[in-house]
Design a protein around this nucleic acid. Structure first.
Lengths: 198, 198
DNA sequence: AGGATATATGGACACTGTCAATATGATTAA
DNA sequence: TTAATCATATTGACAGTGTCCATATATCCT
């Protein structure tokens, strides 16, 4: 155990976050508990209170970091300007989809506002970046249609978000389109694209 | 308090369900508690155990009844065969949307399988009816496309489900399409329809 | 009436999050 | 260096939770 700071347990805050992520990933949102984390770290049950004033503050930190993580992945994966619309939108939706499948409980936490502090500015800023990334792609490639760009963005985002959640909650299984043979998560994006591109 | 059965507290099972629904609606999923319900009903903290062996069983009952409720609303609202595709699909999505907005916490509970008993047959049957209703509408009006009907159904369902959840979790606000002036939840369906109908 | 069954009670246990009082480590000022 | 201050950790308490158990009572059936 590396002590980057002083005190008995080194950088307890970091270790709390790490353990919380492990519990979140392994046991779900309800599996994260202050006392449980303290126990796992061999520290008094009330030690975490110095770093997170309550459970909501802990979840807020988890959500903020997860948002930043997701945004950084999107930035890395999104192709440059030269690419076409289909490529960009498929890349975006694929990134969201794979993040959700890799970290199902983090993804759920991201959008369940009741668990985190809605007044937290850092969290809000981190969250807004995702939507900004999506609208950036769309507005760059949007064609004039009978609805505005924001409706197209919301339709896209709803489709992706809904499919990911259905998969995470096991209301849908992995599947392939029978006609094209491609993965379902790609096929449904194509369904929507054909309605947006003229 | 009407006693439809015997014993001190009449039909306790019904009253537990009713109180649980009130708590669910007012305080969310985490606001539902066995002891809290017992306290509200003026009954011993362990009385509910005779009717629901644990919390999961209670949630399973709540979810089952909510699914049946939603299915019955869809049946009532769905227009007859004479109607066209757009009408039918808008009616379906509108019903889901309004149920979700009226009973946000019931809607969330419906799809969070971790709260209910996945082995419960009645719950499974009640849930399957929803998807059956959607595919019935779609297959009746399906056109040949580059993807199969199931991909279209999943795209539709993902779109509706995603939009409802985004609204319920307050990740989106009520809005209107700037071009057409219609409500957002209708506009996004139109976006998708234009990709499905030829 | 008696016995079986369904239902309700109260106590216990191991948890939980949060708060308050206290103690100790680390840092800064005099 | 000593003293004061601050950050951090500990311990104990409190009210609350779900679940189990032994017990009691009500109801139903034979």
């Amino acid at each position: 155990m590396i002590k980057t700071s002083s005190y008995h347990h080194g950088n307890l805050r970091e270790q709390i976050l790490q353990t919380a992520f492990e519990l979140l990933d392994d046991e779900g949102i309800d599996g994260v508990g202050i006392r449980k984390i303290a126990r796992l770290l061999g520290v008094a049950h009330s030690a975490p209170a110095n770093h997170f004033k309550n459970k909501k503050a802990l979840f807020t930190a988890l959500a903020t970091e997860s948002f930043r993580h997701l945004v950084s992945i999107i930035e890395k994966e999104t192709p440059g300007e030269t690419s076409n619309f289909k490529l960009a939108i498929h890349s975006f939706s694929n990134t969201i989809f794979e993040f959700g499948l890799k970290y199902p409980n983090r993804y759920k936490l991201l959008w369940r506002r009741e668990y985190s502090d809605d007044q937290d500015g850092e969290l809000g800023a981190a969250r807004d970046n995702i939507y900004a990334q999506l609208t950036a792609i769309l507005s760059e490639h949007a064609r004039k249609k009978q609805v505005d760009v924001e409706s197209q963005a919301i339709a896209f985002w709803s489709l992706i978000h809904g499919y990911v959640l259905l998969r995470l909650d096991e209301n849908l299984n992995e599947g392939y389109d029978e006609v094209t043979g491609i993965k379902r998560q790609i096929a449904i994006i194509d369904v929507l694209i054909d309605g947006i591109i003229e």
